[in-house]
């Protein structure tokens, strides 16, 4: 059992009422590795991340972080997990009552008890890294475009330099050039800072650029997992259909015409 796994999921199930979303997910994220999870929308990718973070409790299965069982961790054990993790939410989830810079500095001020002036400096620097000028810091999230909100969310997720970072669709809604800037930023977090990253994306250019390994979630299970070099020769019809974006194939969309 002695591996380099930063996060290990085994047999994770999660249902909402009669709807089974995760049906036994086994997945491993290694130290200082960038893992990308792909899969159709509504397959439970966001739910997967929330289970790892403990924002939702799995119905069964186990989740280990740094070798410790955190499946049902509460209180200080959960707080210790949160201290290690940063998260970019799919919808941004910015605090709309706080100005942008305070959003970015939130984890530093509240979590790490840094003084506000210093936290503000770091926040403005992180904003710069996601391509936002310092003036944006004083605005409220509602005054920003969707793509800008996403980048603020990203700056917030990496501000505390967490060991584990979750990016839920980081490049969705960005123009191709800005998307590439964000890709570079994610690579930098992993390569330079040594963080483990789990990224969800539909953007194949992004997958090829940032992934060390790729896992595909389909019908509640990881149906394929391998290095990004193996992606084109996966030999898996589902993966092939997904990465080439074909309507015809084993994955049937429920549409009527």
């Amino acid at each position: 059992m002695l591996t380099d796994a930063k996060i290990r999921l085994a047999g994770v199930h999660k249902s909402f009422g009669p709807k089974q979303v995760l049906r036994g997910v086994d997945l491993e994220i290694r130290r200082a590795e960038s893992l990308v999870v792909i899969g159709g929308s509504g397959t439970g990718k966001s739910v997967l991340i929330k289970n790892i973070l403990g924002l939702m409790q799995p119905d069964s299965g186990t989740i280990h972080i740094d070798g410790q069982d955190t499946t049902h961790a509460r209180g200080s054990a959960r707080a210790a997990v949160m201290d290690k993790c940063g998260m970019l939410f799919q919808g941004g989830a910015l605090f709309d009552s706080l100005p942008v810079w305070e959003n970015v500095a939130f984890g530093l001020i509240q979590g790490k008890r840094m003084n506000r002036a210093q936290a503000r400096e770091i926040a403005l620097e992180k904003l710069g890294q996601v391509g936002l000028p310092p003036e944006v810091g004083a605005l409220l999230p509602a005054e920003l475009s969707g793509g800008m909100q996403k980048r603020v969310g990203l700056a917030r997720a990496i501000a505390t330099q967490p060991e584990i970072i979750f990016f839920d669709e980081p490049t969705t809604g960005l123009d191709p050039i800005m998307a590439d800037v964000i890709n570079n930023l994610i690579i930098k977090c992993v390569r330079q800072i040594g963080a483990s990253a789990l990224t969800i994306t539909h953007d194949m250019a992004s997958v090829r650029k940032i992934a060390d390994r790729v896992a595909m979630l389909h019908e509640g299970k990881i149906i394929w997992c391998g290095s990004v070099r193996e992606l084109d020769a996966s030999g898996n019809a589902h993966v092939d259909q997904f990465i080439h974006g074909r309507a015809e194939g084993p994955i049937q969309m429920q549409v009527r015409s």
């Binding site: 929330k50 973070l53 403990g54 924002l55 707080a79 949160m82 201290d83 993790c85 940063g86 998260m87 939410f89 799919q90 919808g91 989830a93 910015l94 605090f95 709309d96 939130f106 984890g107 509240q110 979590g111 790490k112 917030r156 505390t160």
Partner: peptide
């Protein structure tokens, strides 16, 4: 805040 996941975000920011 709940439906826009801001409450979840608070938790992930150790608050």
């Amino acid at each position: 805040m709940r439906v826009t996941e801001q409450i979840d975000a608070l938790t992930t920011l150790s608050t």
